[in-house]
Simulated scan of single mutants.
Amino acid sequence: MDIRLVRGDITEQHVDAVVNAANSSLLGGGGVDGAIHRRGGPDILAECRELRASKYGRGLPTGRAVATTAGRLPARWVIHTVGPVHSATEDRTELLASCYRESLRVADELGARSVAFPAVSAGVYGWPMDDAARVAVRTVQETSTTVSEIRFVLFGDEAYAAFDRAVRGPDPKHAP
């Protein structure tokens, strides 16, 4: 599996599937979620409404993933996943890892070979960027998948640097 880091806009990625850091309503929101819905157009929202009317009446549970069309995005599909809100008093790491595993499971079911991920939960959900990067990279590296290319599409320099450190691993000069 090839892991790449990209500075930029996830809505511009030419991949089989982009992952949306969605809220449980699946009906759009801010950040990555809002950008994907705006750029992808009404077809994404229409499929999300169908999912809410059928399988996910109470919303998509945290850590789960589901796919829709990508509408006008240059990808074929959007895989929506709901990340956990960071908590200083409760370890929700497994829920964050589940977002990546479940997204790859859905990608495999779709036959996707290239997937672009945002930094799930590291925005408005408050997950510390270095830890979010560590969990994301470790989880995709340890998950059995037929996806051959994974892109982490990162909006800012802080996120890019954190994911770069996570991909490269600890610096041996600073190891104990």
Rank of each mutant, 00 (worst) to 15 (best):
P118E: 00
T145Q: 07
R151N: 05
G123H: 05
T139E: 02
D91Y: 10
P118A: 00
F152L: 09
D43C: 05
G63W: 09
F152W: 07
G111E: 03
T93M: 04
R151H: 14
A159D: 14
V167Y: 00
L96C: 03
R138F: 00
A166L: 01
A97C: 04
Y100D: 03
C48M: 14
C48I: 07
D130Y: 00
I79S: 06
A161M: 06
V115Y: 01
S103V: 02
V140L: 06
L60T: 12
D164P: 00
A116W: 04
A162R: 06
T143V: 10
V167I: 13
E102L: 05
G169C: 03
K55Y: 13
R64P: 08
R64S: 10
V167N: 03
R39Q: 09
E142T: 13
A53G: 12
V85M: 13
A70R: 06
G111H: 04
Q141Y: 03
V137K: 08
Y100Q: 06
E149S: 11
H174P: 00
P128D: 10
V153T: 14
E102V: 05
F152T: 09
R113M: 04
P172D: 01
R113S: 07
A136F: 02
S144Q: 12
A112E: 05
P172R: 14
G59V: 09
T68Y: 06
A161D: 13
D130H: 09
